[in-house]
Design a protein around this nucleic acid. Structure first.
Length: 638
RNA sequence: GCUGCCGUAGCUCAGUCGGUAGAGCGUACCCUUGGUAAGGGUAAGGUCGAAGGUUCGAUUCCUUUCGGCAGCACCA
């Protein structure tokens, strides 16, 4: 007797074990036809799996969401591998999982695949779908499987299987002439994949993800249950491309990059206005939260980096310089050692703590060329960095205060959704277990106190202390890690930072390294993509454009612009001899939030026609009132 | 850094199976003064990423190099 509980809570009883397919048939023929797989107590399995004992079972169909898509994409990977083996028999297969939005498969083949090959493979995949080959599971003895794959010349597969403990039976899946090691589950046949898939791109990938290993050829694809979903996914990719900060940076004349300064940014006027808007907002926040802003040197003798430990741990990322008089300097990659130097000036008392030292610190790091990406990953960047020198007892309150500040800042920039990752003690670490206990619990509790959920990142802390990493989610659902808070017991020791305690003894402060935006470059890149360049008024590089319908209104338009500028607004004037349609279109495309159009009527009445980005109508308002409204709307968050 | 692809006018791209290049948009000038997402005309713009090689001749073929893109690795 097997009792099967279905998702709706109903229970079906069978005299003997029953396969997923038979269960589906028992429920209804329509369901049996649509069935792709099952989950038994939440675990996805093949449709053919025989349910031996009482369980909660649900039948997966194309409508089952993520789990069903996962099945489909995993199959797509297998079918791609089958197609590749048919077309290029010399290829060795390795692994091919489903991933977000698609799948990939890593192949080992002496000749590289070309983009043209993708079309060929895609066509062959469609044939395999049409063949509707049954996909069957087989259980093998491990050693036999190793020998089998070695016999086929599939050394990677053999290696994977050999890594599975001896004696364990392993599962292979067979479809047509293709057989692959796989945990499963899979669809019942290749026909179920359908045709809503597309091979997307070719890339290299290291065998087992290790850069010391040989590089395999990875083919990425996407797969969906129907053409509509595929199309909307492809459309979404196009839209994402349109908001690419590199493209918008050029189109909106915010910045540019060029090869003579790879990994650095040339900020144009408009981009720099945006930067300054962000910077002055941050500066106000720092002032309101009792930070003291400092500025420290770019070039620092290498001995300081030896003392701090950077020479040891970070030298590969540091730009170094030998001067004409043979001194060895480094361009600073971080601000912390310099901040300790300021802390060390004069004698600090416990009364000075917590001492919050902030810097918009310009840092340079040698990043591998392949890591560079627009302004998101650069070699020269400015951090909104700060170090809080405090006592161990102050870690909690400082962390709470920081979490609150960070949340407020993200909110103000339009990111209400913040996740926190907590990285606890790594195997290799400095400091006693008691200290770690204290630091870890302080961080977690503080994040909670600030209303933030933490997610554990086990063993990922820095060697000198645990850390919190703050991840924001943007308008199209992408996650960006920006903020960080790290507890550091080590650097104060290494660089001999000390304060005089209440009892007159000399003590080490704890340092909290913290950043909210991370780097200005990256954060501004995120802002650009998040808003698609349609910035809120307080950030918009050009807030208002005043433009004319006829040249008779030119003088009045100048007056309007002057009034806006006098009120502190970033207003431009467009008196070109072009039709209003043309000018409206151009400024709309340029994503100017507010357009003030003036013609004869407005000039006579001292009014303006306000047209807002995205809107299709306009509002006629008296000039004074328009200025007052815009001033109020453009105020940065308090 | 690794693998693959790419580098032609300010931008987007076409082209040359080896005989020094073309479009649209943009820019300049002229005409047009037009009420809310592209008015018309004319013109200027490129030693085809750089260096070397093959060749009578290279933007086109080869090598090297720099940069970009995608992914991996790195970083966080």
């Amino acid at each position: 007797m097997v009792a099967i509980t279905l998702p709706d809570g109903s229970v079906r009883r069978f005299d003997s074990p029953i396969s997923g397919l038979d269960l589906a048939r028992d429920i209804g023929t329509g369901l049996a036809k649509a069935a792709l797989g099952i989950t038994i107590d939440g675990t996805p399995r093949d449709l053919s799996t025989v349910i031996e004992s009482d369980a909660r079972v649900s039948i997966l169909t194309a409508k089952s969401g993520a789990e069903a898509l996962d099945l489909l994409r995993h199959d797509a990977a297998h079918i791609m591998a089958e197609a590749v083996k048919e077309l290029y028999p010399e290829t060795q297969v390795t692994i091919g999982p489903s991933i977000e939005n698609g799948f990939y498969y890593d192949f080992a083949r002496p000749t590289p695949f070309t983009p043209d090959d993708l079309a060929t493979i895609e066509a062959r995949m469609a044939e395999i779908v049409d063949r509707n080959e049954a996909i069957t599971r087989e259980e093998w003895d491990r050693d036999e499987a190793v020998a089998f794959f070695l016999g086929l010349g599939e050394k990677y597969k053999a290696e994977l299987i050999a890594a599975i403990p001896a004696g364990q039976t392993i599962s292979l899946y067979r479809q047509g002439n293709f057989i692959d090691l796989c945990r499963g589950p899979h669809l019942p046949s290749t026909g179920k994949l359908g045709k809503a898939f597309k091979l997307m791109k070719l890339a290299g990938a290291y065998w087992r993800g290790d850069s010391r290993n040989e590089m395999l050829q990875r083919i990425y694809g996407t797969a969906w249950f129907d053409k509509k979903e595929l199309d909307s996914y492809l459309h979404m990719l196009e839209e994402a491309e349109k908001r690419d900060h590199r493209r918008l940076g050029r189109e909106m004349d915010l910045f540019h990059q060029q090869e003579e300064a790879a990994g650095s940014v040339f900020w144009h006027k408009k981009g720099w206005v945006l930067w300054r808007a962000v910077e002055s907002y941050m500066r106000r926040q720092l002032e309101a939260n009792d930070y003291q802003e400092v500025k420290t040197p770019q070039l620092v003798d290498y001995s300081l980096w030896e003392a701090s430990g950077h020479a040891d741990k970070f030298s590969e990322n540091m730009f170094t310089i030998t001067t004409q008089d043979d001194r060895h300097l480094a361009v600073k990659p971080m601000n912390c050692p310099c901040h300790v130097q300021i802390f060390r000036q004069g004698i600090k008392s416990y009364r000075d703590l917590p001492l919050r030292m902030a810097e918009f610190g310009s840092c340079h790091r040698y990043e591998p060329s392949g890591a560079l990406h627009g302004i998101m990953r650069v070699r020269a960047f400015t951090q909104d960095d700060a170090h809080i020198f405090c006592t161990e007892d102050q870690i909690t309150s400082e962390t709470v205060a920081f979490c609150h500040l960070l949340k407020e800042v993200y909110q103000d920039f339009g990111f209400p959704d913040v996740r926190v990752k907590f990285s606890d003690r790594p195997a290799k670490r400095a400091g006693s277990d008691e200290t770690w206990d204290k630091a870890e619990s302080a961080l977690v509790e503080a994040a909670k106190a600030a209303g933030l959920e933490t997610e554990l990142n086990p063993g990922e802390g820095a060697f000198y202390g645990p850390k919190l990493e703050f991840v924001l989610r943007d308008a199209i659902g992408r996650d960006w890690q920006c903020g960080t808070l790290q507890v550091d017991f080590v650097l104060p020791e290494r660089l001999d930072a000390a304060y005089v305690a209440e009892d007159g003894s000399k003590k080490r402060p704890v340092m909290l390294h913290r950043a909210i935006l991370g780097s200005f470059e990256r954060f501004i890149g995120i802002l650009i993509e998040n808003f698609s360049g349609r910035f809120p008024l307080w950030l918009a590089p050009v807030q208002v454009v005043v433009t004319t319908i006829v040249s008779d209104a030119d003088d009045y338009a100048r007056e309007v612009q002057a009034a806006l500028r006098a009120a502190g607004l970033r207003a431009e004037l467009d008196l070109r001899n072009e039709k209003i349609n043309y000018k409206v279109r151009e400024h709309s495309v340029a994503k100017v939030p507010v357009l003030l159009v003036v013609g004869k009527r407005e000039a006579e009445n001292r009014a303006v026609a306000i047209r807002r980005l995205g809107g299709s109508d306009q509002e006629i308002v008296a000039l004074d009132q328009a200025v007052a409204t815009l001033v109020a709307e453009s105020a940065p968050p308090a």
